[in-house]
Design a protein around this nucleic acid. Structure first.
Lengths: 247, 247
DNA sequence: CAGTGTGTGAATGTCCGACACTAATTCAGT
DNA sequence: ACTGAATTAGTGTCGGACATTCACACACTG
């Protein structure tokens, strides 16, 4: 076995500051929305310089544990999923994951999302979905607008299912996969119509509270996308070439 | 419509520094593994003080875009999935997601993982899996060790499937769900045996390159866990009470 | 009294300069 | 050539400083 290379935290002051505040947030001593003391005060509190406190705060800030509506007010953040999704999206992009990998996962998540949506849907949520669907229908032929609206459509389906874990897990994956539509679209112009049709059926199934049908159409829809990817010959291509545009 | 609340970046120097370096990494100008210049040099380069550069660096560091093997060497990081998983795990914990939500997703991810593993398995990977399984068999009755080994078993299954996206998506979810075993175990002592049996079958199916059977046993296994959660009466309980122990 | 201006104070963003400590590098010794 | 010591340069932390600007309180107007 040999000696394991275990991380030794030399525990720099700025790290300890960050960890201390972090653990107070996670424990609940500091509640979301609560305001933190000023930098000077904290510096005094922890017995370090303001510069050091600042370095620690930068970390918390970037980890999304605190946020500042204005530079003057620093408050404990309310956790949001979309913050995270950009980050894992970026990781996947840097890993140069393939369409195949993205698709295998997306197929499952979108099927689940559709099923749950059909089980949990409320009327107002369906209304939102329909409105999105109409917008999308009007965007036929426009790739970038289609990507935008398609993403929102699928997100809304997931939201209707009221499973936050699914929302968290699927968002970056689906986002990355569907972005690829821009690469695929030129090869399969007929996909626009098929997509609209599939979405229609998903909406109907959700409205009819028919989980099985919703799941089935979601599957068809995502499988269809895979076929398009195959036609474009991109199965094992990296899904994102220019990470930059992820935003 | 009213006035949209649009973010105005006042663009503090430290933010701009971070963004600049970040975009150079994402563009590929800076390649993973490459070493960054010293703080002093960067300060000069960007025309700001070292303190300012440092604040920016803290952010990159915490975002996992750069890492430092030693304080002296700061290099562009190679993206890793386990870095991210703690973060989304923490988010889910703060959201107080329920066992139900976790389970619904985990059921799908682990089924997919098992299937892909059976399709992709190589002999040496199976050997690792078997060894983990043996260790787990020996841990019967020990909840915390079971959680540890069970987590590693499932991760290994996922790794064998060679889908990095799935690995990324499932890790924090499965981790959080299986951690709950500690809460569940006292109610269902028989679960240890059932788990070992299920794992055995998964291993067999993977070794036999039988995707269907692997998926089936994964499903049984995770459904079994759900029954245990139900017996413990935790379906809609928050999966984690003390976020602290997440590490 | 609600809503809008004004003013003061305090906190932030950034800078400068300094020092201990340690890791990377160089160089001497066998 | 390899080991070990000496050098050097870079990091972690410190203290202080200043302009800017945001938060709060207060006065003003309708």
């Amino acid at each position: 076995m040999g000696l394991e290379r275990r991380q030794i935290h030399v525990a720099y002051a700025y790290q300890r500051i960050a960890e201390e505040i972090e653990s107070q947030i996670l424990e609940g001593t500091l509640k979301p929305g609560e305001q933190l003391p000023g930098e000077t005060e904290m510096a005094e509190m922890f017995g370090v310089t303001r510069s050091t406190v600042r370095e620690g705060l930068r970390r918390l800030e970037s980890e999304g544990l605190v946020c500042r509506p204005t530079p003057r007010r620093m408050v404990v953040a309310i956790p949001r999923i979309d913050r995270l999704s950009t980050r894992s999206g970026r990781t996947m992009a840097l890993m140069k994951v393939t369409y195949r990998e993205l698709w295998q996962v997306t197929l499952k998540t979108e099927m689940l999302a559709a099923r749950l949506a059909a089980e949990m849907a409320q009327d107002d949520e369906i209304a939102v979905l329909k409105s999105l669907h109409e917008d999308l229908s009007g965007a036929e032929g426009n790739a970038s607008r289609t990507i935008e609206l398609d993403g929102r459509f699928h997100s809304q389906v997931a939201r209707i299912g009221k499973n936050r874990v699914l929302g968290l897990a699927r968002e970056p994956v689906a986002h990355l996969l569907f972005r690829g539509f821009a690469q695929v679209a030129p090869f399969v112009p007929q996909f626009y119509k098929r997509q609209i049709e599939a979405h229609s059926n998903v909406v109907c199934a959700i409205e009819a509270r028919d989980p099985i049908r919703a799941e089935t159409w979601a599957r068809k829809h995502i499988e269809d996308f895979w076929r398009a990817v195959q036609i474009a010959g991109l199965e094992d291509e990296a899904a994102v070439n220019n990470v930059k545009a992820l935003s």
